[in-house]
Design a protein around this nucleic acid. Structure first.
Length: 424
RNA sequence: GCGACCAUAGCUCAGUUGGUUAGAGCGCCGGUUUGUGGUACCGGAGGUCGCGGGUUCGAGCCCCGUUGGUCGCCCCA
């Protein structure tokens, strides 16, 4: 063997913006997914699975004119057949594609839910990763405002059951129908053009590319101009007004609190009517916990029949961080620690631990290292019950002690323990 | 793509105006307290000070570059 340290094999690093999860955080992550799976069933959302990879066209089409996003922020590559493939940066486009190519129109209106990894080539920061994970819920083929309302009530219940609704606000806006939206957009452009000289450099660029985005600019120079810009309300058609009214009435009827945010916009043209975000100030610059809206124009943009649809997505990592902060999720600890305090007890302890496990208890066996320190190490596992096996002066001893008074399976564990030592 | 801050033991960090052999706590391993106990004490293993250059008699410390991380901007489907 070489003693030359320079010959040491370098360990490859994790890909930038990806993360490894262990223990508590991974448990919280799973808890978020499990809660989502439970609640979506209460609302009758079918489970749907779509590929992680799609032809690049699926996302390029759905993202339309925002060329920066398509060209710079997607993980795309050519496969061996020369086809351009993209790792999904969102769920909606893939689900819309599946809806069209599988003829799921026959099930409309179709309520579906899924979760899994997504990929975006962005600069990592708090709550923002290159591989991240989302929960997703969509209703395809319904033009009813009650579909929007139900989707939001679902989201609200999810956050409440996760115990993180405190400090999270549902902010809501309408983008109107195509006619309303176009009229509003034109009025905004006119307003911003008239204040062109006072806008920030960033917003001047937005004025050409995506003028509605000036409304939520963070630059203090833009705020007065953005705040004095016209709201969409004056441009809403009667139908659009009724639609928004029906959504908010549905929310009120279901007891879901909401706030109007007339500055909440969506950059893409296929978004219509409802736009919403559940926001918090506890996640740094990434304040959106769950967001979505109605995208009546998307499926048509992908070459399908005109199909109204509405949906939302939520970042699992962000939800897991909020779960951590709220302390609403208890760390998993073992039911029982079985300690062999003497070498002659190790096999018995091993056998007893196996019996506990077969009886449905999470049992940890502590039978290595210094015998004198095993009990202390077992205590540090924070089990509900602790079982000690020892040999004192040649006599085998055993004890089982309850450490967590709230633990309700203690009698069952005692029964297993007694039975183990009374059987021949 | 832009900016700020950071990088020392497995983890969290200290390390003075640049000055002998780089430290602590936690964790890990072993031993002692012949004990129903999360204690205390003793000992041990573990470090290319992110990497590469430079300045200097001398660099963990100063300078340049680089890589990575964090946070923010842009973007946000």
């Amino acid at each position: 063997m070489s003693k030359d340290k320079s010959a040491k094999i370098p360990t490859p690093q994790a890909v930038r913006g990806t993360q490894d999860m262990l223990g508590d955080f991974a448990d919280r992550f799973a808890h978020v997914v499990e809660t989502f799976e439970r609640v979506r069933r209460l609302y009758g959302y079918k489970r749907v699975e779509v590929p992680v990879i799609e032809p690049t066209a699926v996302f390029a089409r759905s993202l339309g004119e925002t060329t920066d996003v398509v060209s710079k922020e997607m993980y795309s590559f050519d496969d061996r057949g020369g086809e351009s493939i993209t790792l999904r940066p969102e769920f909606t486009a893939g689900i819309a594609r599946a809806y069209i190519t599988n003829g799921w129109q026959q099930f409309a209106p179709l309520k579906v839910a899924t979760h899994g990894p997504l990929f975006r080539y962005e600069r990592p920061q708090k709550g923002r990763y290159r591989q991240f994970h989302q929960l997703d819920a969509e209703v395809l083929g319904s033009d009813s405002p009650l579909a929007d309302a139900e989707l939001l009530v679902f989201a609200d219940q999810l956050l409440k059951e996760l115990g993180i609704a405190e400090g999270v606000t549902l902010t809501l806006n309408t983008l109107g129908d195509a006619e309303s939206r176009d009229a509003w957009r034109a009025a905004l452009v006119e307003h911003f053009e008239s204040h062109r000289g006072a806008l920030s450099e960033d917003s001047l660029a937005r004025l050409d590319k995506n003028p509605m985005r000036i409304l939520d600019s963070k630059d203090p120079r833009d705020r007065p101009i953005a705040d004095s810009a016209p709201d969409i309300d004056a441009f809403l058609t009667a139908e659009a007004q009724d639609f928004f009214g029906a959504v908010t009435s549905g929310l009120d009827a279901a007891g879901v609190a909401w706030e109007r945010n007339a500055r909440l916009v969506r950059g893409l043209d296929y978004y219509r009517h409802t736009a919403f975000e559940f926001v918090t100030d506890r996640l740094g610059a990434q304040g959106t916990v769950l967001g979505g809206g109605r995208y009546d124009g998307l499926i048509e943009a992908l070459g399908g029949p005109p199909t109204p649809a509405v949906g939302w997505a939520a970042g699992i990592e962000r939800l897991a961080m909020l779960v951590q902060e709220s302390g609403s999720f208890r760390t998993h600890v073992p039911d029982i620690a079985v300690v062999a305090e003497n070498i002659d007890c190790e096999l018995t302890a091993c056998s007893l631990a196996a019996v506990f496990r077969r009886s449905g208890f999470w049992a940890e066996l502590v039978a290595t290292g210094s015998p004198r320190k095993r009990f202390d190490r077992a205590r540090k596992l924070d089990p509900a019950l602790i079982v000690s096996l020892d040999v004192r002066d040649g006599v085998h001893t055993r004890s089982i002690k309850l450490l967590d008074e709230r633990y309700n399976r203690s009698p069952a564990a005692h029964a297993v323990f007694d039975s183990f030592f009374s059987s021949p």
